[in-house]
Design a protein around this nucleic acid. Structure first.
Lengths: 108, 108
DNA sequence: ATCAAATATCGTAATATTACTATATAACAA
DNA sequence: TTGTTATATAGTAATATTACGATATTTGAT
């Protein structure tokens, strides 16, 4: 075993899980926060910013991109990465929904 | 290699990553959604609800609890698990913040 | 054409996760 | 006590992730 049984869950559940998983690493959170900080969508001087090797950063960027959390567009030799607002909105909605549901519940 | 370099990131970054990671599995999303659905905080008839063995569910519950996403209190033979609103609020705030920051940015 | 800069990909070692079976523990009921 | 129910833990196989060095690839400059 060891493989996740994705086929037993709904598409929505898998989608949220994939996005959350992509955020489930401090380096990827740091990348997101860096992209936010530099306002303009600067590419990989992220390598200078984080204590990780270039191939590792590249791998993390790929996962963020696959999950739809960032977008990247070619800009000469470099690539301009930036936040994909849509996906973050989806997350915010999802959690807002959870909270408003919980608000009406009494438990433990 | 293989171990995450947590010590290079801020406490906040690690905390968000830990919470996100806990949500990064469809079974755990399904557990959260089930807890929301049953309103009252019913314990592990989750085992009947999901296509996973009891110890696997127990393991997933433990991770959700460690991340602070759910709370569990002993109720006789069983344990009453329920959503921990606080942590979800934290997430919602975090993403709301990201969105309002991105809203002012132009990129790619 | 040649070189440098920016990224991506390959291969791989170390470690973590997922899921299971078997077994333990804890609380209540008969 | 004995059994039953609910849950947790231990051990383990299969697989995934993380990180890196080495090596492509791609584009722009000289």
């Amino acid at each position: 075993m060891g493989a996740t049984k994705t086929d037993h869950f709904t598409d929505q559940q898998n989608k949220i899980a994939i996005i959350a998983k992509a955020l489930g690493h401090p380096a990827r959170i740091a990348i997101i926060e860096y992209l936010l900080k530099v306002n303009a969508c600067i590419c990989s001087d992220i390598v200078d910013e984080l204590p990780l090797a270039q191939p590792t950063i590249s791998q993390h960027l790929k996962e963020l991109k696959n999950a739809g959390l960032i977008k990247g567009s070619i800009e000469g030799t470099s690539i301009c990465y930036c936040i994909n607002e849509e996906t973050f909105s989806l997350l915010k909605e999802y959690f807002a929904n959870i909270i408003s549901t919980v608000a009406n519940q009494k438990c433990c």
